[in-house]
């Protein structure tokens, strides 16, 4: 088992005729992902690298039974692409696109509440179930099949964490990069819930960053519901406080968001926090030793 993605997932690529869309469609297929279709409005009917391209997601789903979308559509049209995927009845959309305006994502998030489709991202590396399927831009070779769930707000720092886990002999069930934008689809808690229910996953590693309060909320959820050990790393302990404008941000967050606050909250909720990014694998081993969070 795994979460969200497995070897039976049929993946279509929105924006497949773009440079990165095509490149990563190829990389994912080489990893073993079933890439069954591409979608680019106006290019329906052609084939790229043997993959049929359709004008709409609906059409692609009708002909190929795709259930997952990987989105590489440029920012001005990306919000529309996500909604199109939801409307076509897909189960999961992974939006890699970086730079989608907040004003576009606010209604998307609201509308997705009425759909069954789950969204990962935007501005994320995607997700991978090692040795089965990869829907994203992460390097496949650092991953190894196993029992650790990984959920992260970061991109390359996730690769660093996963490599340390693999080097320590700790394979992964599924690794999810939820993305670093202000508005994202699945958050830490959504992924923790899925890992909690997944029989293959025995422990979870979480990678957070300064800013926002998602890590604090996840910590509270772990304390109340998590049946499995959780370890974490928070980047930015030594980051200088940035310049800021006005008061509204501070009023909304209530002053939360500093790395030290996040680490304290996580520890108080039973999460093992790595005190250095060089010891993420060790932190997870130690969490496994301690048992349930």
């Amino acid at each position: 088992m795994s979460i969200l993605l497995n070897k039976n997932s049929k993946v279509l690529v929105q924006g497949i005729t773009g440079r990165s869309g095509l490149f990563h469609a190829r990389m994912c297929r080489e990893y073993g992902t079933q890439i069954v279709a591409g979608v680019t409005p106006g290019k329906g009917g052609v084939h790229v690298e043997g993959i049929p391209v359709f004008n709409t997601v609906e059409e692609a789903v009708r002909y190929t039974k795709a259930n997952v979308s990987m989105i590489f559509v440029p920012p001005p049209s990306a919000a529309d692409a996500i909604l199109e995927a939801a409307d076509a009845g897909l189960e999961l959309a992974v939006c890699i696109t970086e730079g989608i305006p907040v004003r576009d994502m606010v209604p998307v998030k609201r509308i997705l509440a009425d759909h069954k489709m789950k969204l990962i991202g935007p501005n994320c590396p995607g997700l991978i179930t090692p040795e089965e399927s990869k829907v994203g831009i992460m390097p496949g070779y650092i991953h190894k099949k196993g029992k650790i769930g990984v959920v992260s707000r970061s991109g390359t720092l996730t690769y660093e964490a996963v490599k340390q886990l693999t080097d320590a002999g700790l394979g992964q069930s599924t690794c999810v990069g939820i993305g670093g934008d202000p508005i994202i689809g699945l958050n830490f808690i959504d992924c923790l819930k899925l890992f909690n229910e997944d029989p293959q996953t025995e422990a979870v590693f979480m990678i957070g960053e300064i800013g926002g309060s998602a890590e604090e909320e996840a910590a509270e959820w772990v304390k109340a519901h998590m049946k499995k050990p959780v370890a974490a790393f928070i980047a930015g302990v030594t980051a200088p406080p940035g310049r800021r404008m006005g008061h509204a941000g501070a009023i909304v967050t209530g002053g939360k968001g500093k790395a030290a606050d996040k680490i304290n909250t996580l520890r108080n909720c039973g999460v093992t926090v790595a005190d250095s990014p060089t010891r993420m694998g060790e932190a997870l081993r130690s969490a496994l030793g301690k048992g349930k969070s």
């Binding site: 992260s152 707000r153 970061s154 991109g155 390359t156 720092l157 996730t158 690769y159 660093e160 670093g180 990678i207 960053e209 300064i210 790393f233 980047a235 930015g236 302990v237 030594t238 980051a239 250095s276 990014p277 060089t278």
Partner: peptide, 12 residues
């Protein structure tokens, strides 16, 4: 490369 890794690098 990458903001999270860059922050982690400063931390190390």
């Amino acid at each position: 490369n990458g903001a999270g890794l860059a922050m982690a690098t400063l931390d190390v």
